[in-house]
């Protein structure tokens, strides 16, 4: 075989592989959509899963508060530092308040909050459901006439969708407070200017954009982490792989969805 032929073969292999990967990704997206749609359908059917939604909300939301608070605080602090040194070059330190607030509310709050939630809660959802599959607990539920889609999947998606906007709001508030402390108390920016600029530049639209992003990320994380666990190969390795995949696919998904949503709101 000549050199050209080998290169061509390699190219076919590359694009063939890419094509197959793409088809598999599409197939998985379809399956995930079907699974979550059927599960969410049980929201309107008896038995009502309210109690289990609340339990999950507590487990996911309250359990993630500390990590969200820490991330939010340091994000606000770093933004204030970086913002201050950039703005100081133009002598416009007074704009620091609005800069920090816009970055956090529109972008960093939802995105970093979502990324932390994938690591903290999404991965544990995948592992938990995957282990329930391995140890036949999902089958045991079936035999006791309990639908795992209604009992296990639905409450986790709903809890994620409610928890994320709330956690992101907390992230925002803590981030802004931390930014204020660094900017005003440490770096000596005028406190009135910091807050005044912040209030003047933030529109309700910015707040809505942040919340809608948080909502979208919550749904996405809920769907991906439950799907990965439910469809995990029922072995130890399968669950480990599914958990990693949930984190990777979830993170990339959040960043992609962020771009799409941002382009709508600008």
């Amino acid at each position: 075989m000549n050199k050209n032929g080998a290169a061509q073969d390699a190219m076919w292999m590359f694009f063939g592989g890419l094509g197959r990967w793409f088809l598999r990704a599409l197939e998985n997206m379809g399956d995930a959509a079907v699974l979550s749609a059927t599960s969410l359908g049980y929201l309107f059917m008896r038995p009502w899963q309210g109690k289990h939604i609340v339990l999950q909300l507590y487990a996911l939301g309250v359990g993630s508060f500390v990590i969200i608070a820490i991330t939010g605080a340091f994000t606000g602090m770093v933004l204030a530092l970086q913002g201050y040194y950039t703005l100081a070059k133009f002598g416009s330190e007074s704009l620091l308040g609005s800069g920090v607030a816009l970055a956090i509310i529109r972008e960093l709050g939802p995105v970093l909050g979502a990324l932390m939630m994938i690591g903290r809660a999404g991965s544990s959802i995948t592992a938990e459901i995957g282990i329930m599959r391995v140890t036949e607990q999902l089958d045991a539920l079936q035999m006791m006439a309990i639908n795992p889609k209604a009992r296990v999947i639905l409450p986790r998606i709903i809890a994620m969708l409610i928890a994320l906007p709330i956690l992101v709001t907390m992230f925002d508030i803590i981030g802004l407070a931390a930014g204020y402390i660094v900017g005003v108390e440490l770096l000596g920016v005028n406190g009135g200017a910091f807050i005044g600029e912040m209030i003047a530049k933030i529109t309700p639209m910015d707040l809505y954009a942040g919340w809608i992003k948080a909502l979208g990320f919550g749904v996405l994380i809920g769907i991906i982490s439950t799907y990965m666990g439910y469809r995990a190969t029922p072995t130890t390795e399968g669950v480990a792989k599914a958990t990693t995949q949930a984190v990777v696919v979830g993170s990339v998904g959040v960043l992609m969805l962020d771009y799409i949503l941002t382009s709508f709101f600008l």
């Binding site: 282990i131 329930m132 140890t135 036949e136 607990q137 089958d139 045991a140 539920l141 079936q142 035999m143 006791m144 006439a145 639908n147």
Partner: peptide
């Protein structure tokens, strides 16, 4: 599910619900 309300199953590897204690597992149905 109507049929299953009258069925029970003992799985080869037990398949107890990990998050519940012995009492709650037996009381579950």
């Amino acid at each position: 599910y109507q049929l299953r309300a009258h069925m029970g199953m003992v799985f080869q590897y037990s398949a107890l619900l990990n998050s519940l204690n012995v009492y709650d597992n037996v009381a579950f149905p």
